[in-house]
Amino acid sequence: MSRLLKSVVKLSAYITFGVLFFIIGYILVRGIPNLSPSLFHLEYTTENVSLFPAMITTLMLVFLTLIIATPIGVFTGFYLVEYAKKGNRLVEVIRIATETLSGIPSIVYGLFGMLFFVVYLNFQYSLLAGTLTVGIMVLPLIIRATEEALLSVDDSLREGSFALGAGMLYTIFKIVLPSAMPGILSGVILSIGRIVGETAALMFTLGTATKIPEGLFSSGRTLALHMYILSTEGMHINESYATGVILLAVVLIINYVSTLLSNKLAKGSNDE
């Protein structure tokens, strides 16, 4: 019985890894031969479907979204854990709201973004509308991660700080935040993954323009969107695979840099 169980467990693991390697391998095999310098031209044309504008748009979107969502999410987490009194009605409401938000399919965010930002606020298809939409989408991730990270900081440390006459703010910045930093950062990394991989929520908010956005109010397309559109149009399947390779590379690089950063921060707070 236990041998059977063991082989089932093993098999599951192999299947999981197998599928993962297959997908990545397939994309690499189909994509790498199609990578060419011309795909990195500044301009997208019908003949040369350059992915460069999409790459820049992706980075812009990630950067702008994090600038908006991270402070709001982190401060909300701080409010929930450090300031709000337990059993407070508002806290309950915020918790239910974040949990609900994190369960909503992204197309619903897309629809909301289109109706509210694009149409009602008349932002048109724009970087701003896209940013705000995915910003709302990743907010629950950041709030959740911040909450968990803060809750894992031992209360005795807060007490120790208060007992020395430190105020709330001083305690948060000097004691709580450094200990919670790695956890908060992992939430931010997760958010980056969601933003980079998102299409449904962006299609009708960020739009699908092929140029690098000139400002907050111009449209653009991210790598994931670019890929999606190329493959639905059916004319540039090979370039779509090449885009997939670049998307993978971008995700890997962002993850690597974030991990490096969080390790550095974690080390900084408890150095030898």
Partner: peptide, 10 residues
């Protein structure tokens, strides 16, 4: 305090 609670710093 009852349980030693040094901060996780030097």
């Amino acid at each position: 305090f009852q349980r030693p609670n040094p901060f996780p710093i030097s």
